[in-house]
């Protein structure tokens, strides 16, 4: 039987080991919390169809993550999907003619919003809306179109 001091010390070491594992796993084995640190601003895009896009999906430009999807809701007037995105404050000079598209990483991967910059000197401000958007490619519609002989009558 160990003395009570040794027991307390070992118990303390054990908890420290737990904390060390926590830090190791949090830093090495997760995305480190893709929540945007520091300030951010919101941009809005309307899509005809968001497909499988979900809140917290990433928003990237040229492959670099610049923000994440905050919420997705249906616009009652236009019956389009309104996607609100949180963009990190560091990227505050996105041109106002930038287009947004819903893309898929890999064939069956997650869907995300890809931004394609335009050439306008004016940057987008908090609450601004993307003028050019491209909806998600829905696999069933794609297959359907092939089956129908590539007919574009649905569009």
């Amino acid at each position: 039987m160990k003395s009570s001091h040794q027991i307390e010390f070992t118990a303390g070491l054990f908890l420290l080991l737990g904390i060390a594992c926590l830090i190791f796993l949090a830093v090495q084995a997760t995305d480190g919390g893709s929540e945007i640190r520091g300030g951010s601003y919101e941009l809005v895009a309307s899509f005809g169809n968001v497909g499988g896009l979900r809140p917290r999906a990433k928003v990237s430009m040229a492959g670099v993550t610049v923000g994440q999807v905050e919420r997705i809701e249906l616009d009652p007037q236009t019956l389009d999907a309104r996607v609100t995105m949180k963009i990190s404050e560091r990227y505050d000079d996105i041109p106002d003619d930038t287009s947004a598209a819903i893309l898929t990483s890999g064939i069956l991967g997650d869907q995300y919003v890809g931004l394609e910059p335009g050439g306008s000197p004016e940057p987008m401000r908090d609450g601004d809306q993307f003028l050019i958007t491209q909806s998600a490619v829905v696999l069933e519609q794609l297959i359907g179109r092939f089956m129908m002989g590539g007919g574009g009558d649905e569009e």
Binding site: L22, A26, A29, G33, S34, R56
Partner: peptide, 19 residues
Amino acid sequence: FWGNIQATVALGRDFMGGM
């Protein structure tokens, strides 16, 4: 192997949820 884990495991939902 690690890169894939880091890119896809969400700290909040997946890891902290488990904790």
